Amino acid sequence: MARTRGARPRRVRLWRWRRNPLRRRSDLAEAWLLLGALVLALLLGVLSGLAAAGAVDGSLAERRERSSPVAAVLTEDAAGAAASVTENGDGGVWAKVRWTAPDGTLHTGRAEVSPRSPAGTEVTVWTDPAGRLVAAPPEGAEARFQTVMAGVTVAVATGGLVLLGGRLGRRRLELRRLGAWEAEWRRVEPSWRRRMTG
């Protein structure tokens, strides 16, 4: 029967799961391997993502507990939007400030402040229990974003690694199958060649 021009072969879905005389044991093993890898990738991805999000959320909460806002005073005029602009690009500049630690001692350091603030301006800085300057802990939307991004990143990475493992397992099955075909062909080929030439 001649194939019509342009006709595409019909795909048989889920053929590895259907009983037929052409299905090999390795086909069924491959089907189970792929299904197991998919289920495991989803399950481990979700669980590891939730664990990572929980860990980041706990870390941020601990950071918020360990740091506290403290009133500080600028000891110098803050520069204009010059070369000292902060890394996060929010328009702040670094300037020298003075604050009182919880134990009553005076400290000085550099903190991010609004540009062009004159000396003597009161600003808020964050300190640890020892009175040292620390970065302000993320709160609200920024904290939620960090938590969600950590969870999603870990979930995708974990799921991807499991799927990659499934692909490697499938490749091993294919190589075994090709090796078996080659061994079978070596046994059959001499008699087949005699029949064709004789």
Rank of each mutant, 00 (worst) to 15 (best):
A79L: 10
H107S: 12
P115E: 08
V113Q: 02
H107C: 10
S84G: 09
D77V: 04
V97R: 06
T75M: 14
G89L: 03
G89N: 02
T105P: 05
S67Y: 00
H107A: 13
L74I: 03
S84F: 05
P102G: 12
E65I: 12
V73C: 09
E76I: 04
V73Q: 08
E112N: 13
G92T: 15
G92V: 10
A82Y: 08
G109F: 11
V93F: 08
E65D: 14
P102M: 02
T100P: 00
R63K: 06
A81K: 14
S68G: 08
G109D: 09
E65R: 15
T75W: 09
P102A: 12
V97H: 10
A78M: 09
S67K: 01
W99I: 05
V70E: 14
R110I: 01
A95K: 00
T75F: 09
P102D: 09
T108I: 06
H107R: 15
P69W: 08
R64L: 11
A81R: 15
H107M: 10
S67R: 07
A79G: 12
K96R: 14
A83S: 12
R98I: 06
A101P: 00
E112R: 15
E76F: 05
A71P: 01
R66T: 06
V73I: 12
L74H: 01
A83C: 03
E87Q: 08
W99K: 05
A111E: 06
E76T: 07
V113C: 04
A78V: 13
R98W: 11
D90W: 00
D77C: 04
S68Q: 11
A79P: 05
L74C: 04
P115S: 10
G89K: 01
S67C: 01
L106M: 09
V113D: 00
G91A: 10
G92R: 15
G91L: 11
V85H: 02
T75P: 01
T100V: 15
S114K: 13
L74D: 03
S84H: 07
V73P: 01
P69Q: 06
V85S: 10
A82D: 14
V93D: 04
G89F: 00
P115K: 06
A71F: 03
R63S: 09
E112Y: 05
D90K: 12
T100G: 03
